[in-house]
Amino acid sequence: MNPSLASTPPRQACAECDVYRAAQLKKLGVNVETWDFVVALAGNPNTGKSTVFNALTGLRQHTGNWPGKTVARAEGGFEYRDQRYKLVDLPGTYSLLSTSLDEQIARDFLLFGRPDVCVVVADATRLERNLNLALQVLEITDRAVLCLNLIDEAGRRGITVDDRQLSRDLGVPVVPCAARQGQGLPELLAAVAEVADGRRLCRPHRLSQEPPALQSALRELVAQIESTYPDLPNARWVALRLLGGDEHVAQALRSGELAELYTRTQPPAASK
């Protein structure tokens, strides 16, 4: 483990260079009638999702240093290397497993909004609790990027995060950022683009620590689900939610929406 790798120069030199950025990123504000990819910003409350959103779209979503500042979905757009992206800023959530009302908007969009890439914005100063949500997102989708935000604050507290190790462990790109200062955003964009167009395949980490009784129940149900819907990439998650009695997922299964939702292998080009 070599933590000094974490947030140090070679890549960051690019972040400061305006030419690099200007050539690649075009902020589109709210003008997103058509797009190639939908990117969702998920994460715990107060980790800087809206700050990332503002930096990429040029919009001015309200930000504030308290959890729960964003309570509604916001959409904006940007263009990167001739591809158009719709970016969706979501309210913060602690978990996708609960049914609380204040987290409903984010949960519904992540589960049923069909984002092409899900960017999990995590607070580098308290990674462990942020991984709680990140791991849940990775159970759902295999197109995710972890944005390790607030890396400047972590640095001030003497915390270093080995992003390569973390990326290997999670199986998705991990990009250290300081969104407020604009650090790391070019790398974030590059990672999002690679995951979006399939140049980078993720092999997301899957949970393994459940108690044996739960695991065997899961295995049984997963086998059944997979034999019916062989294309479903996240049968384990569906099984988990069905065991948990999630009516939303059960309904989606019944109506056939779920199968439809996840069997899509190609990203829709310029969908409406």
Binding site: Y94, S95, L97, S98, T99, S100, R129, N132
Partner: peptide, 11 residues
């Protein structure tokens, strides 16, 4: 119920 789940989610 939700109270229990929230406490768990909070860690």
């Amino acid at each position: 119920g939700p109270e229990r789940r929230r406490l768990l989610d909070l860690g």
